[in-house]
């Protein structure tokens, strides 16, 4: 088990390094740097001025060196102004003497940089926004997972029955309705004058301070609806497979009722596969979160990602990518480990 874990974590770290390097390359392309320069300086800078600004601020070093600086494994650049003798550098903050500044300042040292959009240290921004998105994800999970499992189990326990057909069609419909479609439909039906109901609010801005049934139902419903169908279908497939096993027939033949067979014998084995699916669904939820937070104006992590890209906030984009990649890799790891624990037939040695 231990060697399996170490190997998995090793591959995970390697993947994370490769991915962040690619994101670093893509966020630091020439047009982005030029835009950054002009927004830091002024819009009417000449090409020569842009070039010298980039030169003076360490953007003209080798890509790998800069990635190392960002990561915190290479010492930050320093530059002595030839005229004034002032020393500037990546790690030298305003008001700190050059001698006292640390030589390494990357994400490994906890230095995420400062956001251009929020004018705040990025670490704090990301934490706050993740907290908001955390609430959204939590409610989506609370709503989505039980409903999906129940639908899947009920559909799968009598394959081909009318209940099965109805529930399976519902699952397919839910997987065919991406968040931006269900969000629009839900708002029109439940929050607009045309729908006439106006039970809920079409925006979740107020949910950032205070989550209520009124302002949080629609985003949670839209997000849960898209993921629900997939998990339900996987549960159904797993359930139908279990129901054809010999031990289920044995249990039936020894006189147990159908309900007891399903609850005591089938359910436990049928829920192994959906666990993996639910974990792997989390990365897909990330795309949904970005869409839903934009649609409902809920300023969480997804909204921040859009804002960072829209405003060319390179440091914030990098930080958001690290978080996103980390989430994806962690869920993969947990699903692998969980699978081994839940399924006694799989042995890693």
């Amino acid at each position: 088990m231990l060697s399996f874990l170490i190997q998995r974590i090793g591959v995970m770290l390697l993947t994370a390094l490769c991915l962040t390097l690619i994101v670093f390359f893509l966020t630091n392309l020439e047009p982005n740097l030029e835009k950054l320069t002009k927004s830091e300086g002024n819009q009417r800078m000449t090409d020569a001025q842009v070039e010298s600004w980039l030169q003076n601020n360490g953007y003209r070093q080798n890509l790998f060196k800069r990635y190392g600086e960002w990561l915190g494994v290479a010492p930050g650049w320093t530059r002595t102004d030839p005229e004034t003798g002032n020393v500037t550098g990546r790690c030298i903050r305003n008001g700190v003497a050059a001698e006292e500044a640390p030589s390494y300042c990357g994400i490994l040292q906890g230095e995420w940089g400062t956001s251009l959009v929020f004018k705040e240290p990025i670490g704090g921004v990301i934490l706050k926004k993740l907290g908001l998105t955390g609430w959204l994800m939590l409610w989506v999970m609370i709503v989505m997972v039980p409903i999906a499992l129940v639908i899947g189990v009920v559909a799968g326990m009598r394959e081909g029955s009318k209940t099965d057909r109805t529930l399976s069609t519902f699952s397919i419909m839910s997987t065919s309705t991406p968040e931006y479609v269900s969000g629009v439909i839900l708002i029109v039906v439940f929050a607009s004058r045309l729908g006439g109901l106006q039970w809920f609010k079409g925006t979740s801005q107020s949910a950032m301070e205070n989550i209520t049934f009124e302002n949080f139902t629609l985003p949670v419903a839209a997000l849960a609806l898209y993921g629900l169908g997939y998990i339900a279908r996987m549960t159904r497939a797993s359930m139908t497979e279990v129901m054809t096993e010999q031990y289920i027939r044995t249990a039936r033949l020894k006189g147990l009722t159908f309900g007891a067979v399903v609850l005591k014998h089938a359910l436990r084995n049928a829920l192994i596969a959906p666990f993996t699916v639910i974990m792997l669904q989390i990365p897909y939820l990330l795309t949904g979160v970005v869409i839903i937070e934009t649609l409902f104006n809920y300023k969480g992590f997804g909204w921040t990602l859009v804002a960072a890209v829209g405003n060319n906030d390179i440091e914030l984009m990098m930080a958001a990518s690290v978080v996103a990649v980390f989430v994806v890799l962690m869920t993969q790891l947990i699903s692998d480990i969980g699978y081994v624990f839940l399924n006694p037939r799989i042995s890693v040695n």
């Binding site: 990365p283 990330l286 795309t287 990602l305 990649v325 890799l329 993969q332």
Partner: peptide
């Protein structure tokens, strides 16, 4: 493992 949405924003 690359979040799809991020890849699109960058590409």
């Amino acid at each position: 493992a690359f979040p799809v949405i991020l890849l699109f924003f960058l590409l």
